[in-house]
C-alpha cells in the first residue's frame, strides 16, 4: 500500500533521514521505533507532505506522492494524527470533529462515522460543545484520533499517540490501536518511543537510528532481538501481550 524508497529529507541544509526504505501492506500495523531525534517524526511529516523530500520516492497504491501538498495527501487517504495531537484549541470539540471531515461532502456518511467515533470515545459526546483546549491530554488524544477517523483514512499515520499521557490512557491508546486494526481493519503506521507496547500491537517494525533503518522484522522477532531489548525495551523487559 505504502512503499518508501531511498528517502532523504531534513530541515534546512541538514538531513534527518538518509535513504530510508519502508513498506506498509494493507491491513497491517507497522511501528517505527527509535530514540528521540532518530527521524521518526520527520518520516511521517515527509509522508504527509509537510516536509519535501530531498531525494527518493514515496509510493501510495502505486502512485508517486512525494512533493505533494499536505491537503492533497489527505485527499488520497493518508491521514495523520500529529505529534502533540494538533487539537485546534480555540474551537469546540464538535468543530474539531467537523474539520476531520473537511474534505468530505457525504452528509449521511459523516453522521454515521461520527456515531462510530462516539461509540469508541463516549467521552467526546459529553464534551461536544466544550472548547477543545480545555480537554485533558487523554481526551485530546481521543479527539485527535476520532477526528482523523472522520477523514476516512486508508492509511492512518500516528505520531507518538501515547506521549505525555497517564499510564491508564497509554493503555487505552494501545487498546484503541489494537481495536482499530482487529475490528475496523485500518492500516496503521505508528511512531512510538514506547517500544514495548507498540511492538505488542504491531505486525512488523522498523528501528530507526540517526536517520537510518538499522533493523526491521516481525514484531516478535524484534522483541526477541538482543540489541532491541538492550536499547529500547530495557534489559529486563518482559513481552507484554495485548
Amino acid at each position: 500500500m505504502l512503499s518508501i524508497e531511498d528517502l532523504s529529507a531534513g530541515y534546512g541544509k541538514g538531513l534527518a533521514l538518509h535513504g530510508v526504505a519502508i513498506k506498509v501492506e494493507k491491513g497491517e500495523v507497522v511501528v517505527l521505533i527509535g530514540a528521540n531525534g532518530a527521524g521518526k517524526s520527520t518520516l511521517l511529516r515527509t509522508i504527509s507532505g509537510v516536509l519535501r523530500p530531498k531525494k527518493g520516492h514515496i509510493l501510495f497504491q502505486g502512485q508517486k506522492i512525494e512533493g505533494n501538498k499536505p491537503h492533497s495527501i489527505v485527499k488520497i487517504g493518508i491521514v495523520q494524527v500529529p505529534e502533540g495531537r494538533g487539537i485546534i484549541s480555540r474551537m469546540t470539540v464538535k468543530e474539531n470533529l467537523d474539520m476531520g471531515a473537511y474534505l468530505r461532502s457525504d452528509k449521511d456518511g459523516i453522521i454515521g462515522d461520527l456515531e462510530r467515533v462516539f461509540e469508541k470515545f463516549p467521552r467526546l459526546r459529553e464534551r461536544l460543545g466544550q472548547n477543545a483546549g480545555t480537554l485533558s491530554g487523554g481526551e485530546q488524544q481521543m479527539l485527535a484520533i476520532g477526528r482523523a477517523l472522520l477523514a476516512k483514512p486508508r492509511l492512518l499515520l500516528m505520531d507518538e499517540p501515547s506521549l505525555g499521557l497517564s499510564p491508564n490512557f497509554v493503555e487505552f491508546v494501545f487498546e484503541t490501536i489494537h481495536e482499530l486494526r482487529e475490528k475496523d481493519g485500518y492500516t496503521i503506521l505508528l511512531v512510538e518511543q514506547n517500544a514495548n507496547q507498540a511492538l505488542g500491537v504491531a505486525d512488523r517494525g522498523y528501528v530507526l537510528e540517526t536517520g537510518r533503518i538499522v533493523l526491521e522484522g516481525e514484531s516478535q522477532a524484534l522483541r526477541d532481538n538482543e540489541e532491541v531489548q538492550r536499547a529500547y525495551l530495557g534489559r529486563s523487559a518482559r513481552t507484554v501481550e495485548t
Binding site: 504527509s48 507532505g49 509537510v50 501538498k69 499536505p70 491537503h71 489527505v74 485527499k75 491521514v79 495523520q80 500529529p82 494538533g86 485546534i88 484549541s89 480555540r90 474551537m91 468543530e95 467537523d98 474539520m99 476531520g100 473537511y102 474534505l103 477526528r147 477523514a151
Partner: peptide, 25 residues
C-alpha cells in the same frame, strides 16, 4: 461555514490545517 472554520484552523496552525486537508495557500 466550512471555509470559515478552515480559516480559524489555519489561524491556529498551518501544519494542523494542512494535515486535515485544508488547502492553506
Amino acid at each position: 461555514t466550512k471555509i470559515g472554520k478552515a480559516m480559524r484552523t489555519v489561524a491556529e496552525s498551518h501544519t494542523t490545517a494542512g494535515l486535515l486537508g485544508v488547502n492553506v495557500d
